[in-house]
Write a protein that binds this DNA or RNA. Sequence first.
RNA 1: GCGCCCAUCGUCUAUCGGUUAGGACACAAGGUUUUCAUCCUUGGAAGCGGAGUUCGACUCUCCGUGGGCGCGCCA
Length: 437
Amino acid sequence: MSVRVRFAPSPTGNVHIGNIRAAIFNWLFARHEGGKFLLRVEDTDRERSTQEAIDTLLGCMAWLGLDFDEPTVFQSKQCARHLAVADELVRKGLAYKDNKGGGGECVIFRMPKEGRLEYTDLVKGTIKKKAEDTQDFVIVRSDGTPVFHLSNVVDDIDMAITHVIRGDDHVENTFKHIELFKAIGAPVPLYAHLPMIVNNQGKPYSKRDGAAFVGEFKEQGYLPDALFNFLLLLGWAPGDDREVLTREEMIALFTLDRCKSSAARFDVKKLVWMNGEYIRRQPREVFEAEFVSRVQAGGLSTEGVDLAGIMEQMQIRTKFYSELPASCAYFFTDAYAFDPKAVEKRLKVEGVTALLDEVAESYAALPIFDVQTAHETLTAMGESRGTGLGSMVHPVRVAVSGLTEGPGLFEMLVLLGRDKVCARLRDVAKRLRDGSL
RNA sequence: GCGCCCAUCGUCUAUCGGUUAGGACACAAGGUUUUCAUCCUUGGAAGCGGAGUUCGACUCUCCGUGGGCGCGCCA
């Protein structure tokens, strides 16, 4: 039997990370089994299911590389079929009409009244329930529209779905769905329920807890592969100590029996780490393309700089592309911004103005200007002044970059070049004197 | 209230009856009186409680406790 799974979201304009994780697990399962991954848009709520919402959904899937194997099914187009199935169930006596609500006649499905219901969940094991603890439920509303349970099951039958992999919140519904499959006379698929993603309080993770939608992570500069990998590790582990996995490794290793059945807390710190990990592992050409486009988007030119050297320094310390170009603008322009706190702490200090001029003078006099000579010069100055290297390094860094963070100071100076370094040191000294900084 | 499910470091997790309970994130210290980052080393940090089964339970069973989910003519 060939595996067929589906991702069945209702398009609301946002794609929640819990939902997309279900898509990821379905996709990985299909790819691991050599089966089909399908998309069904549950767009029965016509108000919210706009074309824009559907585009957002498709965009998120494409961004994460979740390609599907057959044309998208739109649930709204299957309505007549759902109702026909309901009629058939009524005809067979497996469902009945009722008008308890007073709003007209609805169709209600009969659940077993005695005995035990149970099914084997591929991640949670055997789930049992007494028939008496279940209730008949509406499958067609009195306005003639089919209810979720009916539509969902009929569509799964029509799409020949073999495994239903979805969120934990559906475990109870599964008893209803299985009875529907049986009543309709269709083979019951296998089920796997994924644990929820929760916040620090153990409640379902929502927008109140931070970024909760795929689009937000994209905007904040997360890489799709980093988000994908991170979400996979929420509820699944390969069994060895690997955490950063290639897509190929994930596909090869993914099995449902390695999924956890307890809820996972969303820890953004680990996602941040993983994003940096992914940026560092990108081939230099890929980093370069993104780096250059960010720098240029910031109105900066990459002409006349040691781009390769700058990128070498920046790739290992960039956690988000959105930090660019602010974190390295000083490499590309003399009109770089000064961090006010850094100015206060490192430049507006007794003796610094003179120090900057002195450093510029020493650097200008060097026969060659490289990492070693730049370093030695400052060390020697620190010794002769009896203040040590630390008291020189910080003011110089802030003067030439405006920031307190960045590459090693001497690597940074060499990348800037002696002329710019000396000019900036003198200029900052001047501005400190005339109070314009 | 009734039903279902879940429970290992602060967090994500490994372990599928016998381990000094391992790894990662985060944190702390060191390599590094130049920051941040990278890299390396080191450190602290866990089996919810109680019974039972067993020669031996984190692991199996039961009872508690705590948490989550479900109980719509929402999906």
